[in-house]
Amino acid sequence: PPRPPPKPGPGEHPLQYNYSYWFSRRTPGKQTTSYDQNLKLVASFASVEQFWMYYSHLVRPGDLSGHSDYHLFKDGIRPMWEDSANKSGGKWIIRLKKGLASRCWENLVLAMLGEQFMVGEEICGAVVSIRYQEDILALWNRTAYDQVTTSRIRDTLKRVLNLPPNTIMEYKTHTDSIKDNSSF
């Protein structure tokens, strides 16, 4: 059923866009549910204060167990390749050593909510993926072939994430991810 869009409360600081927070987890063993079915909407919000209210109650990504993902996407964009906002897009992928996910995710989220990327409508959302050996951040944008935009996003990511100098950043189009079936 359609949800009413969230609205900033009195005195709150509105965000440029409304966002939705999603969670997914792959259960061990045979996969009987689709990616779509695993995706759970946690909350939608329209202001800085609403974001903190939800965020402060969520388990930090670095403290999640198993094969789990948080997805923070602009309201109206599902965190899936098939969504019309994503189908010509791609993502920057940053692999993190264990222990960095919570801090880096917060820095990424604050930069996105605060409109620090300065690429117009290009940003779709961000994902943090908790895995066994390493954790992975991804920032999705609409237009994979737009190199001016993807370079600008990379430069801002480097600035806001404050990553170790040897961190590798990789850009991948969603079309390529579909072809090689890589979904982490």
């Binding site: 409360g9 005195g11 709150e12 600081h13 509105p14 965000l15 440029q16 800085v48 204060e49 903190w52 209210m53 402060s56 820095n107 604050l110 930069a111 909510l113 605060g114 409109e115 620090q116 806001v160």
Partner: peptide
């Protein structure tokens, strides 16, 4: 139109605002 740009330190300040509680 004007974009609503917030830097990290401002967003962190809002975390402690009474409105967030």
């Amino acid at each position: 139109g004007t974009r609503l740009i917030y830097d990290r330190s401002f967003l962190l300040e809002c975390r402690n605002s009474p409105l967030t509680k």
